[in-house]
C-alpha cells in the first residue's frame, strides 16, 4: 500500500535509453536525469496504432526496443520508413503541435518513451542549456531529413 506510487514510477528507468538517443546527445548525466523525469514509458503490441495521420500531435516518441513503421493512413504494407531502437518519431508535433503527417504503427512488440509537448516546451522555456542542446540536435535531425528528401528528388 505504501509502495503505491513507488518504484514503478521512478523516472530513472528511461535514463539509459535516453542517453543513447541522438536527440539527447551532448546532455550531461544531470541534464539527462531532468529530461528522464518527463518521459513516460509505453508498451505496444505488434500491429497496434501509435497515432493516426491527421491526429493532433501532442507528444514525441523514442523507440527503446522493437520496431515502428511510419506509413500513410491505413497503408502499413507500403511503409514510408521503418524505425528501430534509438529512433525518434512524431517530432514535428514538438515544433507546431499540428496534425500528424503520417500514421505510426508498431511493426513488432515494442517499448516506447513518450514526452508530452507541454512538458517539452516548459523544459525549453525554463532550462536554457538543455534547450540549446536539444534544439541543435533537432535542427541537425531536420537537416538530415531535408538532405534525404533533396537527394531522393534529384535522383533520376
Amino acid at each position: 500500500m505504501f509502495r503505491l506510487f513507488g518504484a514503478a514510477n521512478k523516472p530513472a528507468g528511461a535514463f539509459p535509453h535516453l542517453a543513447s538517443l541522438p536527440l539527447f546527445a551532448g546532455l550531461s548525466p544531470r541534464e539527462l536525469k531532468i529530461v528522464a523525469a518527463l518521459v513516460h514509458e509505453r508498451g505496444m503490441l505488434a500491429g497496434e496504432v501509435i497515432f493516426d495521420e491527421g491526429e493532433e500531435g501532442q507528444a514525441i516518441y523514442f523507440i527503446h526496443s522493437g520496431e515502428v513503421v511510419i506509413c500513410r493512413q491505413g497503408d502499413a504494407g507500403h511503409p514510408i520508413a521503418t524505425l528501430g531502437a534509438g529512433a525518434v518519431f512524431g517530432e514535428l508535433a514538438l515544433v507546431d503541435g499540428g496534425p500528424r503527417s503520417a500514421q505510426a504503427r508498431a511493426a513488432a512488440e515494442c517499448t516506447l518513451g513518450v514526452m508530452f509537448r507541454g512538458d517539452f516546451l516548459a523544459l525549453m522555456e525554463s532550462h536554457a542549456a538543455i534547450a540549446a542542446k536539444i534544439s541543435f540536435q533537432l535542427v541537425r535531425h531536420y537537416a538530415a531529413i531535408v538532405r534525404r528528401m533533396t537527394a531522393a528528388g534529384a535522383r533520376p
Binding site: H40, V49, F51, Q58, A59, V114, F116, G118
Partner: peptide, 13 residues
C-alpha cells in the same frame, strides 16, 4: 490505454 494516452496527457496538463 495506449489509444487514449496522448489525449489523457493533454487532459492532465
Amino acid at each position: 490505454p495506449n489509444a487514449f494516452f496522448e489525449r489523457t496527457l493533454q487532459l492532465l496538463d
